[in-house]
Amino acid sequence: MGKLLSGISGGFTGKVGANIGYVLNGQNIVRALPHVNPNRSERQKANSQKMTVVNEFLHYMSPLIKVGFSIAARGTTKNYYNLAVSYNKKYALKGEYPDIEMDYPNVMISRGDLLPAINPVVEVVPEGLKFSWDQAHSNDSHRNNDQVVLLAYAPGSGKIRMIRYGAERSEGFETLYIIDDMLSEPVETYISFINDERTAVATSIYTGRIG
């Protein structure tokens, strides 16, 4: 049963007939309930698999995706996770149904206009993975305080290590500590930056496969 929010002419929350209402970013949203067609076309099956693949990839890194896409979601009717799914579903998949998979070099974990990492490099060190980047950047001195955002993902096991607010840009490096056998398999790596006011984020950069 749905609940009226502002009288008969207002929005509602919950299920009413074939629709569901909810509030997102202060706006009343109404959408149709999903309907599963047992006679789906190949195109529909492919789209369903794309959604499954992207959601399985993004689900366990939701705290990082929140950092990377929340700013872009402000003022829209979408949340950070919707935006991340939408982008990666469109640009970061490869293969044809039923063999669709993530295209890791094209994955985006953050999207914005902040200065990105310059010449980032990743290397294996005893503690885990050391990310480094050029400290030279624009003439805006306040960019020195931007904090690094890091991700390492092992597709084989699904293991994830991340840093949401790491070293400042001026430091030139940060270590992502890994204490298990995660590096015994190939690992996909990414880097980004967020400013200290949390009002701007850089578009992430794929820093390669380790192992």
Results as ranks from 00 to 15, higher is better:
Ser138Thr: 13
Asp113Tyr: 03
Pro126Leu: 05
Asp196Pro: 01
Leu114Glu: 04
Tyr153Glu: 04
Gln27Asp: 09
Arg209Met: 10
Val107Thr: 06
Tyr206Gly: 08
Leu24Lys: 14
Asn82Arg: 00
Ala152Asn: 07
Phe12Asp: 01
Lys159Asp: 14
Pro34Leu: 15
Ala154Thr: 10
Arg209Ser: 14
Val122Ser: 09
Pro120Lys: 11
Gly7Ile: 03
Ile71Gln: 10
Asp181Gln: 14
Glu127Asn: 08
Leu129Trp: 07
Ile191His: 05
Tyr97Gln: 13
Gly128Ala: 09
Phe131Leu: 13
Phe12Glu: 02
Ile191Pro: 09
Met102Gly: 06
Asn145Ser: 10
Met51Ile: 03
Glu42Lys: 13
Val148Tyr: 00
Gly26Met: 05
Gly211Thr: 04
Gln44Glu: 15
Leu64Pro: 00
Thr52Trp: 02
Gly112Leu: 05
Ser48His: 03
Gly95Cys: 11
Lys89Asp: 09
Tyr97Lys: 13
Thr52Phe: 05
Gly128Cys: 07
Ile179Gln: 14
Asp134Cys: 03
Arg161Ser: 09
Ala84Lys: 07
Gly208Val: 02
Leu176Asp: 04
Gln44Ile: 03
Ser141Ala: 12
Met182Lys: 07
Glu197Val: 03
Tyr60Lys: 15
Ala200Val: 01
Ala152Ser: 11
Ala136Gly: 04
Gly2Arg: 06
Glu123Cys: 04
Ser41Leu: 08
Ile100Gln: 04
Gln49Glu: 15
Glu127Cys: 06
Asp181Ser: 15
Pro34Cys: 14
Asn47Tyr: 05
Ile118Gly: 03
Arg43Asp: 11
Thr77Ala: 14
Ser192Arg: 02
Ile194Thr: 09
Gly14Cys: 11
Asn145Leu: 08
His142Val: 09
Ala202Trp: 00
Arg31Cys: 13
Thr199Gly: 06
Leu93Thr: 10
Gln27Leu: 12
Ile100Leu: 05
Val54Ser: 08
Asp146Thr: 02
Asn144Val: 01
Val122Pro: 04
Glu185Pro: 05
Met102Arg: 03
Ser138Trp: 01
Phe69Trp: 11
Thr77Cys: 12
Gln49Met: 15
Gly11Pro: 09
Leu93Tyr: 02
Val187Ala: 13
Thr189Lys: 08
Arg43His: 07
Gly2Asp: 05
Glu185Ser: 12
Lys66Gly: 02
Pro120Thr: 03
Phe69Arg: 11
Lys159Asn: 12
Leu58Gln: 00
Asp134Pro: 01
Gly128Phe: 04
Tyr87Asn: 03
Tyr60Phe: 13
Ile109Tyr: 10
Gln27Met: 11
Ile191Gly: 06
Ser41Phe: 08
Gly156Cys: 00
Asp134Trp: 00
Gly172Leu: 03
Ser157Pro: 13
Leu176Gly: 08
His59Thr: 12
Ile100Val: 14
Glu171Asn: 12
Val54His: 00
Gly172Val: 03
